[in-house]
Simulated assay, not measured.
Amino acid sequence: MPEQRSVPSGSNVIYQANPEVMKAVDSLQQQFAEVGQKHINKPVRVQTVRGEVYEGIITHVDKTHLYLNALPQNQSNRGFFPPAGPYPPFAPYPAYPGYPPYGSGSNVVLPLALFDLLVLTLLI
């Protein structure tokens, strides 16, 4: 859990998260990170607490985010857009049925906050 920081005296705190809630959020993030790590390079459907649904392949997971290589129907103006051009032939991952092969134009990677995830469904 992140270290607790003291509030400087004389500060007008307008909100402070409940420590028990923060423990629960930390535990939730850790659970999603562990599950995501076990399913890197696999196709999944992700649903957020706000009802947004994304499908794609998990490319990376860290302590706070799950990075999803989104399928074309999920592409929007959110995420990282690599420069256009030829991509090196380094596709070590086979394409899953119904999904474009790696490097075929679906290069939008969505960073999804772990605390915002509600459901993670394996699509194979």
Rank of each mutant, 00 (worst) to 15 (best):
E3Q: 14
Q4N: 09
Q4L: 11
Q4V: 13
R5A: 10
S6L: 12
V7C: 04
P8H: 08
N12E: 07
V13S: 03
Y15P: 07
Y15Q: 13
Q16Y: 04
P19H: 03
V21T: 12
K23D: 10
L28T: 09
L28S: 12
Q31S: 13
F32I: 15
E34H: 13
Q37C: 10
H39E: 08
N41L: 03
V46K: 00
V46M: 11
Q47P: 00
Q47K: 10
T48S: 11
V49A: 10
E55H: 07
G56R: 00
I58N: 00
H60G: 03
V61C: 08
D62P: 06
K63Y: 13
L66E: 02
L66K: 03
L68A: 03
Q73Y: 11
N74D: 14
Q75N: 13
Q75V: 15
S76Y: 08
R78Y: 09
F81P: 00
P83E: 14
P83D: 12
Y87H: 06
P92I: 14
Y93E: 05
Y96K: 08
G98R: 05
Y99I: 02
Y99M: 05
Y99N: 02
P100F: 02
Y102V: 01
G103C: 02
G103P: 00
G103M: 01
S106M: 04
S106E: 07
V108D: 02
V108F: 07
L112N: 01
A113S: 09
A113G: 06
L118H: 15
V119P: 02
L122Q: 10
I124F: 13
